[in-house]
Every structure is written in C-alpha cells, then in structure tokens.
Simulated scan of single mutants.
Amino acid sequence: MKTIASRFFATGAIFALCGMAWGIVMSATQDHTLSPAHGHLNLIGFVIMSVSGTFYALSPGAAASKLAGVHYWLSLAAVLAIVPGIVMAISGSGEALAKIGSVLTLSAMALFAFQVMRHGIGGGPLRETA
C-alpha cells in the first residue's frame, strides 16, 4: 500500500470483515455477551479508520506529514488494545487493557483533531511521505 489513506482504508476493511464475521457468530450462537467489544471493533476499527482514510485522501498536505503515519499506528494500536480489553473486562479478566485501549483511542482522536485543525480539508502538496 502506497498511501496513508490506503492503509487506513485497507485496515478498516479488514476490521469490518472481522466485525461482520463476529456478528454472525454471535447471532448463530445467540450469545451477545461480547456485543460491546463487537461494537467497538466496528466503530473504531471500521468507521473511524475509514473516516481517517477519507480525510487523508482528501488532504494531501496532511497525508504528507509525519504525523499521518503516527496517527495510523496509534489508531491501529488503539483498536488492537481496546477490543480484547473490553472482552477481558466483560469476562472478568481485568480492565487494564481496556483502559490502555481507551487512552490510545482518545490519543488517536486527539491527533486526528490536531491534523484536521492544522491542515484543514484539501489543499497542500501532492506528494506523500508518510
């Protein structure tokens, strides 16, 4: 994948597929205990990653910044921490990972907000280094 937007979109699509498969399993087993984790996978893993990909596709100046790559890896870490963290919290295995995932998720969104405010939508150079 050559662009940061492509990374966000591809990762979001993979998370969407995982979330859909998980939803089918929950439906088939009639066990919806983990639906909060499933919902976070779909919302943070698919929706937020896709919105971020859209922003970077429309804003080459932001996409070219070093912070775009940081934003991607922080967002990925957030999903990979918060979803199993919620599973662990629901199953009574502790809440530490969910708390870490929450802080990572908040940090990723704060970085996204910074990027939007710093670069705006559109404009900027047509090259990308992230």
Rank of each mutant, 00 (worst) to 15 (best):
L126W: 12
I4W: 01
G101R: 03
E128N: 14
A81V: 05
S91P: 00
A64E: 10
I24S: 05
G45M: 06
T3G: 07
V83A: 07
I4T: 15
M20T: 15
F55E: 04
S27K: 07
K66S: 14
I14F: 13
L104I: 06
Y56G: 09
G45T: 03
A98Q: 09
G92R: 02
I82G: 03
L34K: 00
I14N: 01
A108W: 00
M49Q: 12
G122C: 01
A78T: 10
A28Q: 12
G94M: 08
I24V: 14
A57C: 08
A62C: 10
I14C: 06
A77D: 03
I121G: 04
H71W: 12
S6C: 02
I82T: 08
G39V: 09
K66L: 13
F112K: 08
G124W: 01
P60C: 07
F15E: 01
A130D: 05
A57F: 15
A13M: 11
L97W: 03
S6V: 09
G122R: 02
A110D: 06
G122A: 02
M88A: 12
H71V: 10
M1K: 02
A62M: 09
A16S: 13
G53S: 10
M88Q: 12
L34E: 00
L34V: 08
A10S: 08
F114Y: 15
V25A: 11
Y72W: 14
F8M: 14
H71M: 12
I24Q: 05
L74Q: 11
S6I: 08
S102K: 00
E128M: 13
A13G: 01
E95W: 06
W22P: 04
V25L: 09
S27A: 15
M88H: 03
H32L: 04
R118T: 07
R7T: 02
M1H: 05
A10V: 10
L41T: 05
I44P: 02
M20G: 15
L80T: 09
F55Y: 15
A81H: 02
Y56D: 10
T33Y: 07
H38V: 11
A62I: 11
V87L: 08
S91F: 00
A68M: 08
L111H: 07
L41R: 01
S35D: 15
Q30S: 15
P125T: 15
F46S: 02
H119A: 07
A130F: 07
S93I: 00
F112W: 08
L43G: 01
A108T: 05
H40L: 11
A98P: 01
A81G: 04
V116G: 05
K99S: 07
M26V: 00
G101Y: 08
S6R: 11
A98T: 06
A89F: 07
I82S: 07
A77M: 08
G120Y: 06
F46N: 00
